[in-house]
Design a protein around this nucleic acid. Structure first.
Length: 425
RNA sequence: GGAGAAGUACCCAAGUGGCUGAAGGGGCUCCCCUGCUAAGGGAGUAGGUCGUGUAAGCGGCGCGAGGGUUCAAAUCCCUCCUUCUCCGCCA
């Protein structure tokens, strides 16, 4: 959510920046009118309330003195009725305004390249070289089938499309990666480990920006107004919702493993094979709550933490600085990490690292005080995947495959895999 | 799921319709006393948000949340949420 005062003050400038996103800005134009109406109604009702409070005092005084107060009482009755009517209108206006504000995306940072879609994303850096093979490399879905470690058919029988069973060494590999990543972030990068709920309520989904605009992307629970989390970002960021943090505790850094659930509405037909786009997948997430002046340094830091995973796994990747048209609703700046995937003969997103500035903090009301006496300020929030597990498994299978159809296990994972060297031998 | 109890400021807690933005503690800040510490004495402070104003300020809201009754609600009524205890069920 944007700062109402800034929007009021620099409306045209903000609008201009938002237009670079190429998104439909909906009713943005209605802001000024609604904002003015709201303030006028507040002034009106508050004046009447002040009057009512005064008269109530007088009534109380008269009653105590056992004097007659009927004339004052009848006056207040009228005033109260007016207040009620104005408050009702005010409430409606505020709700409309709130919905409007919740539907406005974040303002892109000045270092974000202006562009329309993913073809305008900027290459920030590259690590390693795309794998080359002296034999015909297979896609991970074929490797998985041949090795008996990934089963898509049974998953569609048991659940439906875009689900998978991992089996044997496949299941073990996923579990090894979870432990490897969590250990790395916890022990080496200084994150505190969290295991969050996989269902959250509507306020939480609104706090991080999935709602109200993107409800169709989430799985809802029929009996309660709960949602399956699309990422651990939601429960972990909302962990501090409606709190005032102590400035000297910042930055706060959490890492959380969770399953993630996405309806993938609107991506029918995309990435239909393999592990790349599933309704349920695992992810290790990084979340940071930081002071505003540090958030861009922090973005580099969190991106580095995600990159470290790829480096230790020795998977070739590149880092893209997402352009204004490909930023997503909530981010002010976002880097995507893309891993080399032989079956796509291309790089494929495996992590997103974003600085939301105070956009989520305003929605979720997460603030801090520099010290006891200072004013409350909104924190800046960041998160990054560190990493998406399914895609990591796919990348390992494809990049580490051998001519005989086995898969060499990356060195750093061996101790998590019973010291085996290969899957399939 | 059933039965009961409770939710007041940073914490504990008093408060059943008007003089309660809210007693009293604790804490916190300052001062005094004490060789130091512990202890003691005194004074002060009360969160947040919205509106308005250049500002000092002024005003509105606020006692779990939302409605209602009333001229007036922490206090009465309704709904919901959370926590605790007991029973049932259960990984």
């Amino acid at each position: 959510m944007l700062d109402v005062k800034k929007l009021r003050k620099d409306f045209d400038e903000v609008k201009q920046k938002l237009e670079k996103r190429g998104e439909d800005l909906g009713n943005l134009e209605k802001f000024e009118e609604l904002d003015q109406k709201r303030r006028a109604l507040i002034q009106e009702t508050e004046e009447l309330k002040q009057r009512r409070n005064q008269v109530s005092q007088e009534v109380a005084q008269l009653k105590r003195e056992k004097k007659d107060a009927d004339h004052l009482i009848s006056e207040t009755k009228e005033v109260s009725q007016k207040i009620k009517a104005i408050d009702e209108e005010l409430k409606e206006t505020e709700e409309t305004l709130q919905q409007l504000l919740l539907s406005i995306p974040n303002i892109p940072h000045e270092s974000v390249p202006v562009g329309e879609d993913e073809s305008d994303n900027e290459l920030a850096r590259k690590w390693g070289e795309p794998s080359s093979f002296s034999f015909e490399a297979k896609a991970h879905w074929d490797l998985g089938r041949d090795l008996g470690i990934l089963e898509f058919e049974r998953a569609s029988k048991v659940t439906g499309s875009r689900f998978v069973f991992y089996k044997g060494a496949g299941a073990r590999l996923e579990r090894a990666l979870i432990n490897f990543m969590m250990d790395l972030h916890q022990e080496k990068h200084g994150y505190e480990e969290i295991l969050p709920p996989y269902m959250v309520n509507r306020d939480s989904m609104t706090g991080t920006g999935q709602l109200p605009k993107f409800e169709e992307d989430a799985f809802g629970i029929r009996e309660e107004d709960y949602f399956l989390i699309p990422t651990a970002e939601v429960p972990v960021t909302n962990y501090h919702r409606d709190e005032i943090l102590e400035g000297n505790h910042l930055p706060i850094a959490y890492t959380a493993y969770s399953a993630c659930f996405r309806s993938e509405a609107g991506s029918a037909g995309r990435d239909t094979r393999g592990l790349i786009r599933q309704h349920q997948f695992n992810k290790v997430e990084l979340v940071r709550f930081v002071k505003p002046e540090e958030s861009y340094d922090e973005l580099e830091k969190i991106t580095g933490h995600a990159e470290k995973v790829l480096q230790l796994l020795e998977l070739p990747y590149r880092v893209m600085n997402m352009c204004t048209g490909d930023l997503g609703f909530t981010a002010a700046k976002k880097y995507d990490l893309e891993v080399w995937l032989p079956s796509y003969n291309n790089y494929k997103e495996i992590s997103s690292c974003s600085n939301f500035e105070d956009f989520q903090a305003r929605r979720a009301n997460i603030r801090f005080k520099r010290d006891q006496k200072s004013k409350t300020e909104f924190v800046h929030t960041l998160n990054g995947s560190g990493l998406a597990l399914g895609r990591t498994v796919a990348a390992i299978m494809e990049n580490y495959q051998q001519e005989d159809g086995t898969i060499r296990i990356p060195d750093v994972l061996r101790s998590y895999m019973g010291n085996k060297e290969y899957i399939g031998k």
